[in-house]
Nucleic acid binder design. Structure first.
Lengths: 333, 333
DNA sequence: CTGAAAGCGCTTACAG
DNA sequence: CTGAAAGCGCTTACAG
């Protein structure tokens, strides 16, 4: 085993003090070009690598972002994970991945984040309790809810503007000629499902169009089973707004199984614009979440908070756009 | 902000030495029940939480597992991530997630893992160079290639027995009556694709059945485009073995677009048994990777190595099983 | 079993 | 700009 090399070893070889070695690796410290050169050469020769733990012990800060995620079946979330990891890597941060089974993150997950003194926390597809939020506040750890928001104003959240989006979807389906609509909800306690339902309902009621709502759970099976039930009960609408894409795919499959033609017999709109929505089998009309902007917004906020903690809470909502595909194009009879 | 509480504070309140406090939180240290009780009470009152960094600085070991992953589009991998995270959490380990864009992990990724002194590394959907492996060896960090193997014998890998599996798939398709087969490969440089091709070829040649091979890339689009090309060139076989499920879904969609009936006109077998393979639209016959066993095997090895480093290299291969669905059932003409 | 003390590898005032 | 020194919050021989 190669003996572990420390700043002291480098200092000896470079003929400088250990403090100078430290300064070379500490951003913003003042070192002469000459010293820097000597140190870097010695470090290279010895294979020196500053110890992150000694560093964190003193500065009491890390370059670790805690990312908490529930859903991995919905391809939207792995994509979010990938993007955050790549973007944060560019600025020297790494991702501590935490998986939770609950809608609200639990004590053991919070302990992990606190034990590692993460610089910031991103929670996606889940929320957290007010008391958990307090714990992070006490430790001055900034937190962002990504794609979820909480009514309490103590949380900073970044979402797509779900209300506006679902209103636009309502207008669109009605303009396409739908007169009997259905909304299939995601998990009832999620802000996304609630707001999508509200926006859609607003518009549909305004136009006095018939609407029936069904509850489901944001999974493929949920969408599939709900649609089958609708079909078997002879409640088929002429237009569906399904609260996310993965459920919408289940709906499309159920319709296909029952020889119900889309978009001629009924139309379907999803939400997220996951990659599969564009697959030729599905060709799903959907709302594109502005993921890049949502991620950029999250990062800007977190980086500011890491440098200068304020703990301000705000709900950021970013518009997305409708992607029209084959599940809504007017049929040519 | 709550002032940071250290072992010293707890010691003072409990009326013991700081060493005793430390011993309470250090597994295997000897403390009397009485001291332990006093310490835990004081800790509870103050909200004490041992500092992981100070700890790691001394022990030079962490409870962090580095997990490196390339593909997130293929749902197989997010599933792997989720399972590892849940299982490691049970034994007190956390996951540092590293995303790589390359088939072979690069220096910057390795630096992250080394800087954080991860206890072990799992690399999935990617490999690493021999020199990178040496770096981990020098630091006595155990590494497992998950679902990939490398011909050099210096790497410990855990895979499904791809050779055996693809032989079984060959036998199966021939038994189903196929006489003109096609193999659609994944990325050419991956061990999985190479071995699946070899096993399948072995059997097909043994039976003197016609076989044509196509190269592709383990993506949905890859499968879709390859199948379209096959169709347009009038090379349609009566049986496909597609190197993974996500490509097989693309193949099925291309066939459907061209009104080619499955399984009557041609049969399709995939590999992985991802969730979508069981969706009613696809109903794909496939090989189930024994994910739970693969994960258990990986963890057993790593935990042993963390406790007692040997650096032994071995290729572990675990059988899976064929899942027969609608894309191969004999057609009733 | 327990305490006093050394030390892990760094950062950071403090002088110069 | 640079060095000597203190100290971050722990673990771990060493005595007792």
């Amino acid at each position: 085993m190669i003996p572990k090399v420390t700043a002291k070893d480098v200092a000896k070889l470079a003929g400088v003090s250990q403090s100078s070695v430290s300064r070379v690796y500490f951003e913003g410290a003042s070192v002469s070009a000459k010293t820097k050169k000597k140190v870097l050469e010695a470090a290279e020769e010895l294979g020196y690598r500053p110890n992150e733990f000694a560093r964190s012990l003193i500065t009491n800060r890390t370059k670790i972002i805690g990312l908490v995620m529930k859903g991995v079946q919905n391809p939207f979330y792995p994509q979010v994970l990938k993007q955050f990891t790549s973007e944060f890597k560019k600025i020297g941060y790494s991702i501590l991945f935490v998986h939770t089974n609950n809608d609200e993150i639990q004590k053991d997950d919070i302990d992990i984040l606190l034990n590692y003194h993460v610089a910031a926390v991103i929670i996606t597809d889940a929320t957290l309790s007010l008391s958990a939020m307090e714990e992070f506040k006490d430790n001055k750890i900034p937190v962002v809810l990504f794609n979820r928001k909480v009514v309490k104003s103590d949380f900073y959240s970044v979402c797509c503007n779900n209300l506006k989006a679902s209103e636009a979807i309502g207008e669109f389906l009605i303009a396409e000629g739908c007169t009997k609509l259905a909304y299939i909800a995601g998990n009832a306690n999620t802000s996304t499902s609630i707001e999508r339902e509200r926006g859609f309902t607003n518009i549909v009621e305004k136009h006095n169009v018939h609407l029936k709502k069904y509850s489901s759970d944001y999974t493929y099976e949920g969408g599939y089973n709900t649609a089958r039930e609708i079909i078997s009960k002879k409640q088929l609408p002429d237009g569906f707004f399904v609260a996310n894409d993965i459920m919408a795919l289940g709906v499309l499959d159920a319709l296909r199984e029952n020889q119900i033609a889309v978009p001629n017999d009924t139309k379907v709109v999803g939400f997220d614009n996951i990659e599969m929505a564009s697959w030729p089998t599905y060709n799903l009309t959907t709302w594109e979440q502005p993921m890049d902007e949502m991620i950029a917004e999250t990062m800007t906020y977190l980086i500011n908070e890491i440098e200068n903690y304020t703990g301000i809470a705000k709900n950021i909502e970013i518009d997305g756009k409708l992607i029209v595909r084959e599940t809504t194009k007017k049929g040519v009879d």
